[in-house]
């Protein structure tokens, strides 16, 4: 038999009715819009180099990196990662350091 939880007056509290309290941080994390890291095509960076940079920065397999590299080349741009803004900015900084054209956009 479930004894349940009692209030200071000794009355059984219906825990089902107890309001669910969520921390402000968890709520923010749940509702925060993810950001996309987008690599843009350019006529200079060599395709093999782009693939290697993606492998190095994101840890992609060669297959995945080449798939994304081809998407960049053929479509003009490709989303290579999605997630929190801070990490996305860190990735873009690394891409810029490798002289790849990259930017952020809000994930739809």
């Amino acid at each position: 038999m479930d004894r349940g939880t009692r209030d200071p007056g000794g009355n059984l509290m219906n825990t089902v009715d107890a309001p669910a309290r969520e921390s402000a941080t968890k709520k923010k994390e749940k509702t925060a819009t993810p950001w996309n890291v987008v690599v843009l095509d350019d006529p200079v960076n060599l395709m093999e180099y782009v693939a290697r940079v993606l492998m190095r920065i994101f840890g992609f397999s060669r297959e995945k990196a080449e798939e994304l590299m081809l998407a960049v080349h053929q479509k003009g741009k490709a989303v290579v990662w999605s997630g929190g803004r801070e990490k996305a900015e860190m990735y873009v900084q690394e891409l810029h350091g490798s002289q790849l054209h990259a930017t952020l956009e809000k994930s739809s």
Partner: peptide, 14 residues
């Protein structure tokens, strides 16, 4: 101005 050009791809918030 390569660094500035790459920077121009980012929004002001960054």
């Amino acid at each position: 101005e390569l660094a500035a050009r790459l920077g121009g791809l980012m929004d002001e918030e960054s």
